[in-house]
Amino acid sequence: TSPHSSPSSPSAGLPPFFMKGSIIQLADGELKRVEDLRTEDFVQSAEVSGELKIDSSTVERIECSRTPNAVIIQFSVGENKAQVCVEVLVEYPFFVFGQGWSSCCPDRTTQLLALSCAKLSVGDVCISLTLKSLK
C-alpha cells in the first residue's frame, strides 16, 4: 500500500502525515504531533521496534531532476556508505539528526504543509531506516 495523499489534500503529491498537526504514533505507543518529533523519538522507536534500524544518511549531492519541482538527492547510507539516490519533490521533508525537519525548499514546505523546515544541504545527516537482520 503506497501512501498517496487524497487529491483534495493541500499537500498534493506529498503524503498526508507531513502536514503540521498530524498525529504520529511512536513505537512505545506515545502520540506526538509531527512538528514536535525529535531525534530521540526516532532512535528510541527503532530500538523498541526490533526489526528496524536507524541509519545515518549523509547528503552527498543535490541535483535538479527532469521532473518539475523535483530533485535527485544522493545519500551515503550507513556504516558502509552505500550510495543511494532518491527523487523527491523539492518540498519533501527529511529529518536531520539534531536539527529536525529539513527540505530542499523550506519555503514551499511551509507553504504546503505548514511544517516549519530548515534548508537541506550537502553534508546534512538524515535519519533513514533499514531492516535490522541482513545476514
Partner: peptide, 19 residues
C-alpha cells in the same frame, strides 16, 4: 483523526545488497 506510524516519516534507504 488518523494516526500514522512513526516509521512512515523517514525514508527506507536500504542499500542494494549485491553478493
Amino acid at each position: 483523526v488518523p494516526v500514522f506510524p512513526w516509521h512512515s516519516l523517514v525514508p527506507f534507504l536500504a542499500p542494494t545488497q549485491s553478493d
